[in-house]
Amino acid sequence: MPNGETGKLSGKTALVTGASRGIGRAIALRLASEGALVAVHYGRSTREAQETANLITQQGGRAFALGAELSHMGEIHRLYTMLDKKLQEHTGAKTFDILVNNAGIGRALPFEETTEEILEEILSINVKALFFVTREALTRLRGGGRIINISSFVTRSASPTAMAYSLSKGAVNTFTVALAQQLGARGITVNAIMPGYTNTEMNASAVNDPATNASVAAMSALGRWGEPEDIADVAAFLASSDSRWITGQLVDASGGSAL
């Protein structure tokens, strides 16, 4: 892990939602390795989130864990109340620089089997929560800050067995472009990353099935599954000053899947 005083994100503070495992965890670790103080948000995975924060600390970085269910406005307000307190303790201010909207859920099932309850659940976390977590962040984000939304390559590739999930991520893309236009005057960039199939706990059953594993790997022009670190490296670039002239973009990080 680079020295926090020399990393590209030295002096910056980041909030990463859904950072207890998978892509969110990898992003939290990567941002911390560049010197950022990272707020590791989790919904229910208390142990995993604390392990992530502890690992960052053990490697010479700075982090703390925050738990809140994002499906209710009261919980989103509670998240920011806790964040304000923690940031005041760590930095002396309630402002931060980087918001990574990673928290999300997905259900793979046919269109005909998608119930109202399932659709509402997916939209509640993937769209509504992202919308209001971001809205609450705007009074706290410093000028020149970064907002990074995690979308999906399914927004450009037909996925009939993930119709509700695809719908929600399409909304994320639209939100990304509109928000980038609105926040440009403050020097805040807003971009979305679109991962493909990634080797995370969520996809464990597919990874462990030889036939499915091979089929998914073959979808990529690079012939393999994505790893969380593949996405985290893109997030680190978008969080840094290296990406200062990039905003309102949907960055495909699927290894050339379904080209």
Rank of each mutant, 00 (worst) to 15 (best):
54 N>V: 09
11 G>D: 03
253 A>Q: 06
95 T>N: 14
244 R>P: 06
113 E>V: 01
255 G>A: 10
111 F>I: 08
42 Y>V: 00
49 A>Q: 05
216 V>Y: 07
203 N>A: 15
159 S>M: 15
130 L>V: 13
77 H>S: 05
246 I>Y: 12
149 N>L: 04
28 A>T: 01
107 R>Q: 15
173 N>K: 10
120 E>T: 14
231 I>H: 03
129 A>F: 01
237 F>C: 09
256 G>C: 12
74 G>D: 15
68 A>E: 11
138 L>D: 07
248 G>Y: 11
112 E>L: 15
195 P>E: 04
42 Y>P: 00
55 L>N: 01
25 R>K: 11
24 G>D: 01
153 F>I: 15
169 K>Y: 04
213 N>D: 13
17 T>K: 01
139 T>L: 13
156 R>S: 11
67 G>Y: 00
136 E>M: 12
72 H>L: 13
161 T>H: 11
141 L>G: 06
20 S>M: 00
106 G>E: 12
11 G>I: 11
101 N>C: 00
37 L>D: 05
198 T>P: 07
164 A>G: 09
51 E>P: 02
49 A>V: 01
70 L>H: 01
179 L>E: 10
171 A>D: 07
91 T>A: 12
10 S>G: 11
61 G>Q: 11
205 S>E: 15
70 L>S: 01
138 L>E: 03
193 I>K: 08
66 L>E: 00
165 Y>Q: 09
7 G>V: 11
204 A>Q: 14
140 R>W: 11
180 A>S: 14
92 G>I: 05
92 G>A: 05
123 L>A: 00
119 L>K: 08
150 I>V: 05
90 H>I: 05
96 F>P: 01
163 M>C: 15
28 A>C: 01
9 L>T: 04
222 L>R: 03
61 G>F: 06
244 R>W: 09
141 L>T: 02
219 M>F: 12
23 I>V: 03
164 A>V: 13
27 I>G: 02
159 S>V: 08
58 Q>P: 00
187 G>H: 07
110 P>L: 13
